Simulated assay, not measured.
Amino acid sequence: MYGVIFDFLRSYVIERHGGRATWDALLAEAGIGYKVYFPVAQYPDEEIVNLASTAARMLKVPLPAVLEDFGDFVGPSLVTYYEMFVRPEWRTFEVLENASNKIHDAIHRHNPRRNPPELRATRQGEHRMLLTYHSERRLCFVAKGIVKGLSKKYGEDIEVRETQCMHYGAERCHFEILRRSPVGYGMD
């Protein structure tokens, strides 16, 4: 996992859960101690899972809720961080359609150890999209949160329903994403 995600996690903890002291306490509780994460360096996946699990325990909140909230926080930050790969006219659906085949490919092109999640977005009309997620990391809760965060960034009213989940035996996670139409228009 790239260090940029750890840096986003640090920002998330600081902004939504009590400041720098909470981040330092999280690192200590997770057995990591003081650490600086460099954005393009890679760190073990287990380390982010350890931090997220420890955060859930410290906050007394279920891990899926923490991961989804983190995704909601990080979605807009990812678009800003990787703005050179995102067209200004894009909104949630366009970002999702281009995440795997254009954005991930451009980011990971020169890294032989790359392991981005597989995302497949298929439009089912102007207001409906199916999103398939697959990753050995099994962080579908983060993916769901990212969709919600993107919708907030773009001022869209979007509902995300997970219809299949790897945590319940499915090979891939499937999300149905419904964008509510503007007032006066029906959904297709």
Rank of each mutant, 00 (worst) to 15 (best):
V183R: 12
E89I: 14
P112L: 15
E159C: 07
P39W: 08
H104W: 15
E68G: 00
L59G: 01
L119C: 07
H167W: 06
P62F: 11
V61S: 02
N101M: 13
M1F: 13
G75W: 04
Y12R: 09
P76T: 08
V61L: 12
L150W: 14
L63H: 02
I5N: 09
E89N: 12
L27M: 12
R179A: 05
L63F: 04
I158D: 01
E68T: 08
A65T: 12
L178Q: 09
D7P: 00
V66S: 03
A52L: 13
K153V: 01
S100M: 07
R179Q: 13
V142N: 06
F175E: 03
D69L: 02
A52R: 02
R114E: 13
L130G: 05
I32V: 13
T122Q: 13
R113W: 14
E118T: 11
L139R: 04
W90A: 01
Y37P: 02
E118S: 11
Q164K: 15
E118G: 01
A52T: 09
V4E: 06
A99E: 09
Y133W: 12
Y154I: 03
H110V: 10
A25F: 00
S53I: 03
G31C: 09
P112M: 07
P182R: 13
R20M: 13
H104I: 09
R179P: 03
K144T: 04
V160A: 08
Y82V: 03
P44L: 04
I5S: 05
F38G: 00
V86I: 15
R161E: 15
R172A: 12
A121K: 05
I177M: 03
P112K: 11
L78Q: 06
E126K: 08
P62I: 07
W23M: 08
V13P: 01
C165F: 05
P76H: 06
S100G: 14
T122M: 05
K144Y: 00
T22G: 00
